[in-house]
């Protein structure tokens, strides 16, 4: 569990990125973090992880926090298993290797995430989605209570986004992990019942249940552009989506005119 009370952090030049942040990342809860570029989403995640100190307020971590960076800085051609093994590094003593229990935890983490069949593949040869899964498996292998992911959907195709989102909600609901992820796509928050946390440049963050908090007005305010929530009727369910107004540019192509 991670508890943040009245937390604030200044950016370069001493200007507040955000302040007055209150957040409880408890087991089983999913928190989605929204905000424009430069509002300090990554800074907030690093602050919650304890990698940097807040300029005001207190962050308390009662359990180990796993971290999945937006882009891993793994420098050498490790295999996926070797990457997931690293999750156990905090538990392995000097001069000793992985115990049988460590190996079981690594196997379980890879099975849970679905990367067991990639175990022998070099990490740097994986696709973006597979890399994300391997890094999530590494965080699970560390047996952390909460897991923080910095834009886990960036660079993923739609199918991989769906699979990753399903996995994150599954980790919270089935494995009881606290999950916090940042994203530029409000749909990832509207897809399930989670807590939305929106960062406003220089102001206080706002948070609440995603279904209630994410309105046309708030999303337009966050992104400084016209965003509408639309409903889509599907066979068994109605889903909510955030639709930004990208504009209508150019002239219709001849075949479009014929169709019209």
């Amino acid at each position: 569990m991670i508890e943040a009370r009245g937390v604030g952090r200044r950016g370069p030049g001493g200007i507040w990125l955000w302040r007055g942040l209150d957040l409880s990342l408890v087991p089983g809860r999913v928190v989605g973090l929204l905000g424009r570029n430069g509002t300090g989403k990554t800074t907030l995640i690093r602050t919650l992880l304890g990698l940097i100190e807040p300029h005001e307020g207190v962050v308390k971590a009662e359990s180990k926090a796993g971290y999945v960076p937006q882009r891993s800085r793994i420098a050498f051609p490790f295999t996926v298993r070797q990457v997931v093994n690293m999750g156990r590094v905090g538990r392995v003593r000097l001069f000793s290797g992985l115990s049988a229990a460590d190996r079981l935890a690594v196997d379980a983490a890879m099975d849970r995430v679905g990367v067991a069949d990639l175990a022998k593949r070099p990490f740097h040869e994986l696709s973006g989605g597979e890399r994300q899964l391997a890094l999530i498996a590494r965080a699970i292998a560390a047996e952390c209570g909460v897991i923080l992911l910095d834009e886990p959907f960036s660079g993923l195709d739609l199918d991989n986004q769906v699979q990753t989102l399903k996995l994150l909600y599954g980790l919270a609901q089935e494995s009881g992990l606290g999950v916090l992820f940042s994203t530029h796509q409000p749909d990832h928050l509207l897809a399930g019942s989670c807590t939305a946390l929106a960062l406003m440049r220089g102001g206080s963050p706002v948070s609440g249940p995603s279904g209630e908090l994410l309105t046309d007005r708030l999303l337009s305010q966050i992104y400084q552009t016209d965003v509408r929530i639309v409903q889509v009727q599907r066979p068994n369910v109605t889903t909510l989506h955030a639709a930004p107004h990208f504009g209508a540019y150019g002239t219709p192509l001849p075949e479009d005119r014929e169709t019209a």
Partner: peptide, 23 residues
């Protein structure tokens, strides 16, 4: 150095990842 072998794997991922892994 041989005793630090396993930690060196995590250290080679950079400071932030290594710290988040508990080093």
């Amino acid at each position: 150095l041989a005793g630090y072998g396993f930690r060196l794997n995590a250290l080679s991922c950079g400071e932030e990842e290594a710290r988040s892994l508990g080093l």
